[in-house]
Simulated scan of single mutants.
Amino acid sequence: MSNGSDIRHGRHCIFLMHVHLIFVTRYRREVFTKEILDDLRPMFASVCTDFEAELVEFDGEDDHVHLLVNYPPKVAVSTLVNSLKGVSSRMIRKKNYPSIRRKLWGGALWSPSYFAGSCGGAPIAVIRQYIEQQQTPH
């Protein structure tokens, strides 16, 4: 997967699916530094690879992160999110960052909720118009 916008092929399908994910820290605590965000990127990329997905883009602020993931249709977004949050939480906690140790306790890095938005391709209005213009057989 060299380019995040390439159409991909599965055994029985052709697809181009992207999801925009946002994960927020537990209690919206401001714990991330540039160093922690730099450590999170390869962790997220590795989990995506395990799911035959691709981390197209990643960045964040001190209390949340944004991911743009290109994923195959056989992957449930909720399963991908579970793995991304679980693996990253365990690995970041092992590194024992002082900002996280000071502000978070109880073994949770992430809030249990998340945002997932489908994105990519044509806007919904264009797709709706295309479908409406189909030649219905008489």
Rank of each mutant, 00 (worst) to 15 (best):
G107I: 04
S113A: 14
S99N: 09
V31F: 07
R11G: 13
F23D: 00
A76K: 13
G106V: 10
H64P: 01
F44H: 14
L109W: 09
G120K: 07
K95A: 09
F51Q: 05
V56G: 03
V56R: 02
C119T: 14
L37M: 13
P137R: 08
F44Q: 05
E30I: 01
E35S: 15
P42S: 04
E132D: 15
L37Y: 07
H138N: 09
Q135S: 12
L16P: 00
R90T: 12
H12S: 14
D38I: 02
V65W: 00
G120E: 00
E30N: 08
V75I: 10
D62I: 08
T25M: 11
E132I: 10
F23C: 03
V19W: 03
M43F: 07
Y27T: 05
S83V: 03
M1H: 14
W110I: 00
V87D: 05
K103Q: 05
R128Y: 05
I92D: 08
G10H: 02
G4D: 08
F32Q: 02
E30M: 11
S99L: 04
A76C: 07
A116I: 00
K95Y: 07
T33F: 12
H20Y: 11
D63V: 01
D59Q: 10
H66G: 02
A125K: 13
S2A: 15
L40F: 14
Q134A: 13
D63H: 01
R93V: 00
V69E: 01
S113V: 03
